[in-house]
């Protein structure tokens, strides 16, 4: 029963999302909707490391930057089609994620947080001091638009559909991964390191794998961003951006399929609503983190899941009493 219902809900949701550009004729709002899609992809990657593997990471903006810069540079200086530049951006970010993870997976908690913050900052500083290649503080402009089979995604409305398709693909990949053998290994190192090792799970290798996957999600998201707005500069990829990503995942509920989606949508809308108030935004972020940690430590989706599980076990007790 639950599964059929779920399919209906998903189908309706998808139809509604397809209709969004028909209703939202305001270009700015459509841009926000497209950005939400990109953030969802990035946050799904973050959630694989943070929510499913239990490793703290604050280097998400670094992956985002690697994907954005490498895809932008490649598409400007070579004839390679933009779609391949985007995939390259994801793969490069993934590879660097693996390189960073190999020495740092021995670390846990705040030590790992420091290393990942350092990683993000190094990437930002490289972009800042990259000379002509990265455009230094001025960044890169006139990044070409995506062109697929001769169709150029010139308008935000058309690009929205491309991003929507990517979101669906990445959500399916995430769902497949976390429910698979590898996904169970991720969750087992989160729940109990020693027991995971005793069951033949190579804890360090699993952590490296998680960071590698996160790198691809984050890098591809960054590339999507670069070719959407056509302009990137180092200030987009500051630590603040990593904190925003993490807040989205925390609020929505880490370690769930829909949590990061819910969190990303809510925070993005809030962000837009607070736009006129300038710096107050960060104060609101701080407050959200505090409130979530105190009252909703498992986020919105996690809290709903808990309630559902509790009801389920109550039903089970009742039925076993009856029998």
């Amino acid at each position: 029963m639950g599964q059929i219902n779920q399919k209906y809900v998903l189908a309706v949701l998808l139809v509604a999302l397809v209709c969004v550009p028909l209703i939202l004729t305001n270009n700015y709002l459509l841009l926000v909707a497209t950005l939400i899609g990109i953030y969802i992809i990035v946050n799904c990657g973050l959630d694989i490391v943070f929510g499913y593997s239990g490793q703290i990471t604050l280097g998400q903006a670094g992956f985002y930057a690697i994907g954005a810069y490498s895809s932008a540079i490649l598409s400007i200086h070579t004839e390679i089609p933009v779609i391949f530049c985007m995939i390259f951006g994801g793969l490069l970010s993934s590879f660097l994620g693996m390189l960073v993870a190999i020495p740092s997976v021995k670390l846990v908690h705040h030590f790992l947080a420091m290393v990942t913050i350092g990683f993000g900052e190094i990437i930002r500083l490289l972009a800042m001091n990259g000379g002509e290649l990265t455009g230094a503080a001025d960044g890169i402009s006139f990044i070409p638009k995506l062109n697929l089979f001769g169709y150029v995604f010139e308008t935000v409305g058309s690009y929205y559909y491309f991003v929507l398709a990517c979101v669906v693909v990445f959500l399916v990949i995430k769902h497949n991964l976390v429910t698979s053998r590898v996904g169970r290994a991720f969750r087992s190192i989160r729940d109990d390191n020693a027991a995971a090792a005793a069951f033949g799970i190579n804890v360090r290798r699993m952590k490296v794998t998680a960071f590698t996957v996160e790198g691809f999600f984050g890098g591809f998201g960054g590339a999507l961003y670069a070719h959407l707005v056509g302009f990137i500069s180092p200030e987009t990829f500051a630590l603040q951006q990593s904190v925003i990503f993490l807040t989205m995942v925390l609020l929505g509920g880490s370690g769930t399929l829909w949590g990061p989606v819910i969190g990303t949508v809510l925070i993005s809308i809030l962000f837009e609503a607070l736009q006129p108030f300038g710096q107050v935004q960060m104060v609101v972020y701080g407050l959200i983190i505090m409130v979530v940690i105190m009252f909703l430590p498992r986020g919105i989706a996690g809290t709903l899941n808990d309630r559902f599980n509790r009801q389920n076990s109550k039903k089970l007790e009742l039925s076993s009493d009856a029998s």
């Binding site: 497949n176 053998r181 169970r184 969750r187 087992s188 069951f199 799970i201």
Partner: peptide, 15 residues
């Protein structure tokens, strides 16, 4: 999860 070391599906096959 206990059967991890007796199974083989890798990351790509899983995704």
């Amino acid at each position: 999860a206990g059967a991890y070391c007796r199974t083989h599906s890798g990351i790509l096959a899983s995704m």
